[in-house]
């Protein structure tokens, strides 16, 4: 485990040099949040009203956190990197190294994601307080749960993206798969809480990655309850277990592919 922490740390340190570049991305983030805030202010013309159980402030804070998770993960970059590793044969060099490739990819990317997440959180809190003021009934006790569940959400997200990247063992371009996945997260996961979708879609979303990668942490932020904590952490742990299992399986199958083709 120590070596993975070391991988994590060195990647974090490397990315510290690029803090400038990361902060420039804030501009886009601010604009997105600003537009959403305007949109929800318009839709909640009666601001004391609840829609699908959420107040206007809750809706905007929800987007603030889901967008942080989105920018922190920067999945496209990761997917491209994994694809490149597979296609360039780089992955073969990792075979005889004393670590697991999945673990390596996960921890090195997390080094970057945690840093980005941290910086974006500062930006998010600033713009949130500026636009809305503090969240109503926010209890500091919720904080550790939100942070932990955000980290779990990112870990699961990263592993799933690694799985998608690894499909490059078999397909020419994993881009379309990533595209579908990212659209699922973006359209169903960042803008609206799951309760906004009705009928069968709501049911499906509750079992989809959306629930554990974006909805979960954001729900804990805007509507904390111990019941949600139990539900969300349980779901995240199950997802984590399955995601790790699937990634290892895909990796093992894929590597066999290399051996068959002789690299």
């Amino acid at each position: 485990m120590r070596k993975y922490l070391y991988i994590f740390k060195s990647n974090l340190m490397t990315n510290l040099q690029y803090i400038g570049n990361i902060t420039i991305g804030f501009i886009t983030y601010f604009v997105v949040i600003f537009i959403f805030a305007n949109l929800w202010k318009y839709i909640y013309s009666d601001q004391s009203k609840l829609i699908n159980g959420y107040s206007m402030e809750q809706m905007i804070w929800y987007v603030i956190l889901t967008e942080i998770l989105w920018y922190a993960t920067s999945g496209r970059k990761l997917c491209n990197k994994i694809s490149d590793d597979v296609k360039s044969g780089n992955i073969a060099y990792n075979l005889n190294k004393p670590y697991n490739y999945i673990g390596y990819a996960l921890f090195s990317h997390m080094g970057e994601a945690i840093l980005r997440g941290f910086l974006y959180t500062i930006a998010g809190v600033v713009i949130g307080l500026f636009l809305l003021g503090p969240i109503e009934n926010f209890d500091l006790i919720a904080l550790p749960f939100i942070i932990l569940s955000s980290i779990l959400a990112t870990v699961i997200n990263v592993i799933l993206v690694i799985c998608i990247g690894l499909t490059s063992f078999w397909v020419e371009d994993s881009g379309p798969f990533y595209w579908i996945y990212s659209k699922l997260i973006l359209v169903f996961g960042t803008m609206f809480p799951i309760e906004y979708f009705k009928g069968i879609i709501e049911v499906i979303l509750k079992y989809s990655p959306v629930y554990v990668t974006t909805y979960g942490p954001a729900k804990l932020l805007v509507d904390f309850s111990y019941q949600s904590v139990i539900n969300i952490f349980l779901a995240q742990l199950i997802y984590l277990f399955i995601a790790v299992l699937i990634s290892l399986l895909i990796y093992r199958k894929g590597v066999r592919q290399i051996n068959v083709n002789g690299g």
Binding site: I27, V31, K41, Y42
Partner: peptide, 19 residues
């Protein structure tokens, strides 16, 4: 880059929501 992005982000939302 940021200027060009701004043009894109605002373009898809109705102007009535801005004041």
């Amino acid at each position: 880059d940021n200027g060009n992005n701004l043009m894109v982000h605002f373009a898809t939302y109705p102007d009535g929501i801005f004041k």
